[in-house]
Design a protein around this nucleic acid. Structure first.
Lengths: 342, 342
DNA sequence: TCAAGTAATGCAATCGATTACACAAACGTA
DNA sequence: TACGTTTGTGTAATCGATTGCATTACTTGA
């Protein structure tokens, strides 16, 4: 009942050759209408399913694409993957997921695994550290496997990328705090070996400059992007001789930690202190004191990445295409920073 | 430089047959030590990579397993997938992700896609509706492709499943509210065609009964599991002649909606009203009024699903194995329901 | 009537790795 | 010396679909 039916079975059934069956199934115009119909009907009747592994071997295309992220179970990466899957699914590509846990060796291993599995493309948000993986990335390019960076990228010729304008985002967030009357704005940054944090920082810096505020070294602290670190670092900031009156955090989690620390020290937000986060994590909207934050449109980012991949596949000189797409950040102004609400 | 190296290339290089190369690479004991070493060295030197598609075709095993979930970008499913990936990765399996968006047709289509792609196994959390997909599930079983349900399952002979004890969870949550002195406990349920919601409801009912409380039909409302519906439904509950003094919600999002509605109507939690949610969404811990909830150990669930799959693959009579694993729910008691805090 | 063209199909190689079977060489043993 | 074993390799088929190059049977035009 459920043995695997191949084109040879159909061929035998109809007393024709497997080649004809194959051509008929592919609606090759060289095959007569009547034969095509006959084959299609018989295939249907015998419950034939094409073995995509055989096709994959012959064509060298597996129909799978690999996506590498630090972690799957975060709102940001989950949403990017959702966007990728939704765009690729109708185009008959399957999405294979890998996690790096920010470990560069694992990143290399994942890329190798995907190459071994003959994926038709790789989309990756690179991990923190940054030198060792150059080599493997070039191996991908040599193999002419389309490679697309999203969010966390490297600048490499011939590689497309989808990012948001982190500089602009940093600028917007800082400008917003200035508009609210904050004058001593601190910045919680992340690993500055990553462009995204570097750019958010630069946007922050530029906004200060443009509006006549001094850039104060002490106000910029690099830390891990989690709640505990955010709280800890805020405690340090508050112990400064001239403590800040606002924080622009490059992460929502650190922002939340900051808010908790501020509250525990008796501050009232946004009157005494304003906080802006980054990422539009679901919880930022849910809090009683909702948190102002930057939305990165992760699902859109995933969709764009998939679209660029598809374009690359459909163009003849595929490896020549290089797109650098930059999405616009969206500032969601919420209670943690909104003062002038008249 | 980057042409694909095959065992034939190695064979030619060493003037031996491809069969010997293949055997040597697989450390076949029939091959002499010296030849093995020679082949391995040459393979290394020529940068040989096994073509897994060829292997897949010959063996009928693709090395991929498919995971089907309603949506990827939720904390629960994201965490399950993370668990699956982490368990399967060291065992050289790749994880292919599909989404159903709770659409049964899409579910069927996804299963077919995965079967066409010759996955070695399928893990699925089924969608809401429930009759049409029986047929396709039996097709999977006929093909002897290991099938594993997680969280949302069907009771089908020969199919393993990993779930949490939703009955117990419902019981625990309700008992906890009783312990806090609540006497009129309402329940926000989900789609009761799904076992999980049915069981949570039954646990709720049993807890009431065991502690001498009447079961009041009006206090049970089925709704979608989101914030807006939670708020809406709570409004309805509060308009009852005898409104409840506690809510056990089968979803954290609905619980949050309920809390927002309660607050907007001037209730103080947990004094006037207690709320317990379900799922341990990240935000439940972050709120100023943190929300009591049930943790489902999703990552553990994913790991278990993967382990069961691996067992099934490693046993000779693989399709005979049937495990029904039930994980223990964990009640996290937080501010939204903790009164007796002496 | 015959060469040339065309439509429809078959043959066999191919993708790359594995493996049942065959076989040669070397060894031991009676 | 002759025969059975063991050891190490090679030959060729196989997995299933595709496709370049025949081949066959017509049709058409001169």
């Amino acid at each position: 009942m459920s043995e695997k039916i191949t084109i040879y079975d159909i061929a035998k059934e109809l007393n024709i050759s497997a080649a004809t069956v194959s051509r008929a199934l592919n609606k090759n115009p060289k095959i007569s209408e009547s034969t095509i119909k006959l084959v299609l009907d018989t295939a249907e009747k015998m419950n034939y399913k094409q073995n995509r592994l055989a096709l994959a071997l012959r064509s060298g295309k597996s129909g799978n694409i690999g996506v590498i992220v630090p972690r799957i179970n975060t709102n940001f990466f989950g949403s990017v993957i959702r966007g990728i899957e939704e765009e690729l699914h109708p185009n008959k590509y399957n999405v294979i997921i890998c996690q790096t846990h920010e470990d560069e060796n694992r990143e290399i291993e994942n890329i190798n695994t995907l190459l071994d599995a003959q994926v038709d493309g790789i989309m990756i948000s690179i991990t923190n550290e940054s030198k060792k993986n150059e080599k493997i990335i070039h191996r991908v390019l040599e193999k002419k496997v389309p490679l697309i960076f999203f969010d966390r990228k490297k600048n490499i010729d011939g590689v497309s990328s989808i990012t948001i304008d982190d500089f602009k985002a940093g600028y917007m967030a800082t400008k917003h705090l200035i508009d609210q009357g904050c004058t001593k704005i601190a910045h919680l940054s992340g690993d500055q070996s990553l462009e995204i944090y570097e750019n958010r920082f630069k946007g922050y810096q530029k906004a200060l400059l443009d509006h006549g505020f001094p850039f104060i070294e002490e106000y910029v602290i690099r830390s891990k992007s989690n709640l505990e670190e955010g709280a800890l670092v805020t405690k340090t900031l508050l112990q400064l001789e001239t403590p800040p009156d606002a924080i622009f955090s490059a992460s929502d989690f650190a922002a939340l930690g900051a808010i908790q620390e501020l509250k525990s020290q008796g501050f009232t937000l946004p009157q005494d202190f304003c906080v802006v986060g980054f990422g539009n994590e679901p919880f930022t909207k849910f809090m009683e004191l909702s948190i102002t934050t930057i939305d990165q449109s992760p699902q859109e980012m995933g969709k764009m990445a998939a679209k660029v991949f598809l374009e690359q596949m459909n163009s003849s000189d595929n490896f020549k295409i290089e797109k650098k797409i930059v999405l616009n950040p969206i500032l969601h102004i919420r209670k943690s920073s909104l003062r002038n609400q008249e």
